[in-house]
Every structure is written in structure tokens, then in C-alpha cells.
Design a protein around this nucleic acid. Sequence first.
DNA 1: GATGAATGAGCATTCATTCAT
DNA 2: AATGAATGAATGCTCATTCAT
Lengths: 180, 180, 180, 180
Amino acid sequence: MEGLRTREVADRVGINSATLHYYFSTKEALIQGVVEYLMRELRNNRTKPVAPRSALDLLRAEFSDIRVRLRECPDQLIVLTELAVRGWRDPNIAGMLKYLDEGWRGHLVSVLNAGIKEGVFRSDLDTKATAELMMSQLRGLGFQGKFEPGRLDETLRNLALQTELWVLSRSTPGRKRISR
Amino acid sequence: MEGLRTREVADRVGINSATLHYYFSTKEALIQGVVEYLMRELRNNRTKPVAPRSALDLLRAEFSDIRVRLRECPDQLIVLTELAVRGWRDPNIAGMLKYLDEGWRGHLVSVLNAGIKEGVFRSDLDTKATAELMMSQLRGLGFQGKFEPGRLDETLRNLALQTELWVLSRSTPGRKRISR
Amino acid sequence: MEGLRTREVADRVGINSATLHYYFSTKEALIQGVVEYLMRELRNNRTKPVAPRSALDLLRAEFSDIRVRLRECPDQLIVLTELAVRGWRDPNIAGMLKYLDEGWRGHLVSVLNAGIKEGVFRSDLDTKATAELMMSQLRGLGFQGKFEPGRLDETLRNLALQTELWVLSRSTPGRKRISR
Amino acid sequence: MEGLRTREVADRVGINSATLHYYFSTKEALIQGVVEYLMRELRNNRTKPVAPRSALDLLRAEFSDIRVRLRECPDQLIVLTELAVRGWRDPNIAGMLKYLDEGWRGHLVSVLNAGIKEGVFRSDLDTKATAELMMSQLRGLGFQGKFEPGRLDETLRNLALQTELWVLSRSTPGRKRISR
DNA sequence: GATGAATGAGCATTCATTCAT
DNA sequence: AATGAATGAATGCTCATTCAT
């Protein structure tokens, strides 16, 4: 982010660097704008659930959503990763990402709770910790986002399977059904 | 990385910035030096196995190693994460990290293969893909490395459990023992 | 003057900065406009002499005029001072101020000459040099124009007294008439 | 002052603009440096009184000092004038000039008081107001400092005469009535 | 080996000015 | 007549790097 040059951005967009400053009066403001755009994008462009679905379906949708995004707009994930790194130094960015993360965690926790209520997920599942675990794992994907999309896809698939195994596991007898 | 100031580094070490340039003729060279140091550090400071151990022990050691490092020198992990991001732009860094990753993956694969040979890990395990999965997951931890070490520890513990579940799973009968 | 921002001027007037450029196509032109306004102002807003007056009265009016202006529109004097400084670099401004000064000096000289002809001012008075002296002294007042109006008023009063003493002095016998 | 370009200063001195920043890390610091230099200069380079002198001599020395300075380093006076203008906006500069002025006024007051004690200056002289008057008058000279040194010299001479007349005046009986 | 001084290339930002509407 | 959008030319300042000592 410190390597971001406003001139380069302006050039890439095809405008004068002063014009860029006309819209984003500060480099900081520019980055904020990107973050806000990204947050809207991540919040809105979810796969719309066509019908009421089971918690397991929703959980799977979570991974498939990311697969789609990884294929169609990998840059978003890359930028998100860079923002996270920048967040270590910039409390402003950190704040926005924290807000984004809380929304994400809340969503995951509600899906997991629904699964438990349905009697499909194991009842002793620590939903909040599991949500945190999933988020951490998915964040790790961001690092390879740039190259080797094939291997990345495989990793994502295995991650989904592993997660299903984790949330279903101790409800022992039915577990076999999850195999693909 | 682009936010790194050679003068600041020199000040922190207590030498003149010109002196720093005497040893590392370029900012690039300085970063290279850090990477090399980090690679040595990561390769050497492993928990020394006192006795011949089972593959499962070795697998667990992998996670406990990271827990120790996370506690004792979290900066190393943070720098590693930043280097990974920088690697996206700097093929030089990318090359060194790739080399590091290959060593790591090779180690994990050998551990997993050993587990299969021992008859403890499920025989249909795709060892290379699993190694890749583990690496991706552990990389994800780097992001929170800065704050909330408590929550991070919990995530790491769950990650270990989840991984054990994954590598043992279909060798069904013995699986129960892994539960904590 | 170099610190003058056309946008700020436009904002203060409540119009768009482009609109300001419509009327004053250049910052330079804007300043010229101000100078012209100021010159008209200084020339017209003199205390109108209600009746034919003695040279001494006219001389005193000169000081009282400035006292009034200092009280009622000190900004004008301040701007005038700033313009004088700018005139050192901007021959355009210098020219206009020179023109203004010549008018002022001409007026003073004629007053002083009238006083001599009346037999009130000392006959050996170098009218042009005295006019120059008065102008220099009055210009000096501009510097404190911003703060401490009280002290400034006192200085102006003393300046008037000192000047009277100067123009009357050697015509010794008649000097007593100056008493207020 | 807002028209001051650090690059231009550097060019004039014959160094790189970055080198200038090496010594004066800020434009502000550069100006401060100039002010400090000027203050030292004004304080130290006074005509050294070779022998104990009368108050009238000291008063005359005050004017002759300025004449010398006006001839030998007129730039100093010009800069001083510009600083005074800048002081209207910059409290930092204003503070330093105020300090300088206080020193100057103190010196003048002590000279005037000495003259009264000697019985040479009129005993009803308001020394502080007179000092203020002198300072204001001398400041006015700064404006013409740039051009026409000949006329300026004449003005300065008349100013000295006028001031002497002012401080000595009451050596005549009728004058008392003009004092307020 | 070590360092204070110096510098070129570059950076975000400012600002008077232009232009299409 | 009025203005929002756009821009070129600075401007103060930073920083990795060089160099003489």
C-alpha cells in the first residue's frame, strides 16, 4: 500500500493525477474508497439462495461462493489480503476490516447454529471458534490467489470437505453420507 | 516492505545509514539478507525429536512448533506474511519463498506418507494435496498474528484437531482416540 | 500576496472559482482590480473640506483623515502595506503605487506651499523633502495597523504634533499660534 | 514569504534543494534561521561607542547606524520589512519580532531618559511614546529601502533633525501648551 | 570500517487556469 | 453568466544511494 503511487493509478485510469485528487483528495481517501467499494462488493455479490436451504447447503455455498470469486475476480481477494497487511499499521483500515470480519463471523455462526438446530451438525460444536477457524483458513487461500489457480481450487475443495468432516464428525453414524 | 526505511533500520541498530549501506549495498540486498536469515531460522529451530517418533507425533509436533514460534517470535511470522505479499510483485522474493515452501511441503509429505505406511493415517489420503492444505491453513494464521494471541492459540488448537480428524478419518475405528 | 488563493476569494464571495476567472481572467488582474478600487477609495473618501481652510487646518486634516481610516477600515491600510512589499517584485504594482504616491506627494506639497505663502509655516521649509518625510512616517504606521490600535493612535497623535513643530519651528515668533 | 521557493534558495546558494533540507529540515526552519541570523546581526553590529557619550550623541548614533546599515546591507532592512508583514499571519515570526522590538524600544527609552537626566532633553518628554514614535518612523523607511537610496538618505537626515527638534523643543517658553 | 554531507529521482499535493456545457 | 470537471506546472519534502574523508 505504501508502494501505491497515485500517479500510476491515475495513468492506469487514463486521467491526470490532479484529476484523481479532484475525486479522492488524499491517497488515504483513495484507499478508503477502495475498501468501501470492496465491502459493498463482498456484501452484495453473494450467491442468492433461490430457495430455503439446509445449513449444510449454506455451508457449502460459503465455499462455492469463494470459488466463484476466486475465479472471476481474484484481484478482489488479493487486494483484501494486502489491506489486511496494511491494517497492521493503519488503524483506520484495521477498523473497517474488523467490521467486515464481524459481519462474516456473524453469518458463519448463524449458519453453524442452524445446522446444530437441524440436528445435522454435532451438538458440541463451538460455533464461534469454528467460524474463526474457517475464516482463518480461507484467509490463507488469499496468499496463493495470484498464481496457480488450479492447485488453489483443489485446496479449496479439500478445505470444504475437511470442514464438513469437522462439523459433522461426532454425529458418527450419519457421517458417511457426506462423502462426495 | 515499501514502507521500510533503511535509515530507520540503521537507527534501530545504532549505526549510521551509510554504514548499513556498507554491508547491504542495496535495500533489496537488505531484504534478501532478512529472508536468508529467516529461512535459516525456520529450518534450524525446529523442536529436535529426541527419539524416533510416530508419524502422528511428528504431525502434532508440526503444530506445536508453530505454537511455540507464535509465542516466542511472532515477528518472524509477521515478516514472513509481509514477504509473501511482497513476493507477488518481487519475483526474487517469490523465488526464495517458493524454495522455502517446497522444503516445507516435502517435509509434510514425508510425514504423511510415513503415517500411511504405519497404517495410522487413512490409506487414500492425497498426501501432496493435504500438505498443501495444511500450509494454506497455517499461512492464514499469520494474519491475526499481530493481535489477540489468545484467540489465535485456540484457532491453532482446533486446526490441529481438524487436521488429525482429516488424516485419520476413514481409518474409522481408531479415530475416536484422537478426541481430546 | 503570493499567499492569496483565488479559490478562497471566490468562496468568500460565494461564487465558483471559475466564475471569478470569468470576471478577472488572471490572479494578476484580480490584484490590479483591488489596487484600482483602493486608489479610488483613497482618493475619494477624503474628509470634504466644508469651507476654505488654512494650510495648518489642511495639514491637521491629513492626519485626522488617516486616524479615521485607521479606525474604520484598517484593512485598507494593511492591504496597502502588503501591496507596497509586493511592489518590490512586481513592477506592475510598483507603477500603480508610484502613481498613487505622486498624487499624495503633490497634495502635501501644495498644502505646505500654501502654509508658507500664508506666512504660517517657516519659509525655509523644503516642501518636497518634508512631504516625503511625512509619507515615510505615515507608511511606518501601517506596520502596527494590525494590532494595538490604542498605541497606534497615540503614535499618530505624536506624529502630528512633531510635524507641526517641524513646519512651524524656525518661524519662531508665530509658533505660539499652533496651540489647539 | 509564501512566495519563497526552497528550490530557488538552494539554486542561489549553489546546492541541491535536498541538501538545503539537510540543514533546514523545513521551510519554516529556514525562515527561523534567517530571523535568528538577522537578530544577531542587528544586535551585534552596532557602532561601538568609543568613549562615554552624551545622550544627544547616542540619539544621533541611532540614526547614523541606520544610515550605515541602509548603505551597506539594505537587504537586511528589506527582509526585516517582509518579515514584519509575514508576522501578521505567522505568530511564530511575530513573537520573534516582538522580542526584537522590545529590545530596541528599551534601548531608545534608556537613551531618552539619559538625555532628560542630563537636562538636555525636555523634562516632560514621554519617553516610551517617543521611542514608539521613532520606531514607527524608522520602520517606514524600510519601504523605500529598495530604490532611490539618495532620496532615502535625505529623508533619514530630516527625520533625525525633526526628532532632535522634538526632544529638545521645550527649551522655548511658549511651547508647553501644545503638549497634551 | 565508519560516517557526515550531498544528491537525483520521485512523491503526494496544490493551484491558477481551461473547457465543455 | 455560471460552473463542475479537468489539467500542467509547480512545491515542499522524502529517501536510497554516493562520496570524500
